[in-house]
Design a protein around this nucleic acid. Structure first.
Lengths: 170, 170
DNA sequence: CATTGCATGTAACGCGTTACATGATTAT
DNA sequence: ATAATCATGTAACGCGTTACATGCAATG
C-alpha cells in the first residue's frame, strides 16, 4: 500500500493534478516507485474518498487539482515513522544464479558478465541524472540525492559482485 | 512469470511433491523468491497442463510427485540464457527517504539509524545461515553461496549507506 | 486415542500492467 | 486545419497474500 503514500508525499510538496503527478513520478520516483497513469487516477479517487486529499480546484479540460489534507499529512507522517519497511524483495536476476548449473559454464559466465555490464550501464545512467538532482534546492531534490547515492552504491556493488561471481564459475 | 521458473529450477535438481517444494523454497529461495503454499499448488497445476512437468508418481495421502520434462528443461534453459532480468525494483524503504522532510530532523535521523540497525540484523541472519550453505555440495548450495555473497554485500551496503545518510540530515 | 506432520486444494482481495476509449485546448 | 499536448477515466488479466477447508498417516 505504498503508492498511496508516494502520492501523498508528492502532494505534500504542493498541489497537483493526476497529469502533473504522472510527470512528477517520472522525474523523481521513477527508479524507486514507478507508477502508471492508470494507477494514479485510481489512487487519487480512493484518496479523495478517504479524505486524505481534496479537489482544491478544477481547470480546463476537466483538470482536477488535488491538495493534501491535514489527515493526509498525518497519515504520511505516521507511515514514515511508524510503519516499518517491508519486503523480502524478489530478484529474478538472483533467482537465475541458483539454477546456473542447468547451462554450460561458459553460458553461466556469460550471464554473469552480462549482469556486470547491465549494472555498469545503470551506473552510467544514474551518474547522468546526478547533475539535475544536484542542482535542485527543493525538499524532493535534497532527499533525492540521498536516494540517488543508494542507487549509485548499489549499481557498483552489482557490477563488482557479478564480476566476482563470473570468476567463481569453474 | 518467475515463480514458474523457480519451480522448474528446483525440479531440475530432482523430483518432488508440492509439499516438498514448499519446504525447499523455505531453505533455499526464501530470500530471493519467496512463495506460498497456495501459489505452489496452483503453479504446479499450470506447469502440468503446459507439459513442462508431469506427475511421475502418486503416493499415500494423495501425494503427487512431480518431475520436470524435457520441454521443462528447455524452457528453464531458455529463461536463464535468453530472457533478460527485469524489474525496476520497488523499495518503500527508499521511498520514505524522499519524504523525510515531512518529519522533524531527529525523526528522520532515527528512521535512517533504524534502517542501519535492520540491515545489521539481516547481515547477522545471513551470516548465521552461511555454515549450512557452505557445507552443501549440491548444485543449489554451490550456486546458493554466490547468491548469499550478494546478500551479504547488499546488507553491508545498506548498513553503511543508512549510517552515512543519517549524517546527511542537517 | 490424540497430536503432529503430511498433503492438497479453493476463494477473496488488492496491486500492478497493458490496452482501450474519449475528449478539450493550444500551437503551428 | 491538424497535430501535439493536456487530461481523465475504464476493463481485463495475472500474480501474490491471506484465510479457509479437508483429510490421511504415523508417532507417542
Amino acid at each position: 500500500m505504498s503508492l498511496r503514500h508516494a502520492v501523498l508525499g508528492l502532494l505534500a510538496e504542493g498541489s497537483a493534478s493526476g497529469y502533473d503527478l504522472m510527470k512528477l513520478f517520472d522525474v523523481s520516483l521513477a527508479n524507486t516507485w514507478p507508477a502508471t497513469q492508470s494507477q494514479l487516477y485510481g489512487e487519487l479517487g480512493k484518496l479523495a474518498d478517504a479524505g486524505l486529499v481534496t479537489v482544491a480546484a478544477e481547470g480546463p479540460r476537466g483538470r482536477k487539482e488535488y491538495a493534501i489534507t491535514e489527515e493526509g499529512r498525518a497519515e504520511l507522517r505516521r507511515w514514515i515513522t511508524e510503519v516499518e519497511p517491508s519486503r523480502p524483495h524478489r530478484s529474478d536476476m538472483l533467482l537465475r544464479v541458483f539454477f546456473l548449473s542447468q547451462v554450460p559454464p561458459e553460458q553461466a559466465r556469460a550471464y554473469l558478465r552480462a549482469q556486470a555490464d547491465l549494472a555498469a550501464e545503470r551506473l552510467a545512467r544514474l551518474e547522468s541524472i546526478r547533475p539535475f538532482v544536484e542542482s535542485g534546492t527543493d525538499n524532493l531534490s535534497r532527499n533525492g540525492r540521498i536516494a540517488l547515492e543508494y542507487g549509485l552504491r548499489l549499481s557498483r556493488l552489482q557490477q563488482e559482485w557479478a564480476t566476482w561471481a563470473a570468476d567463481q564459475i569453474k
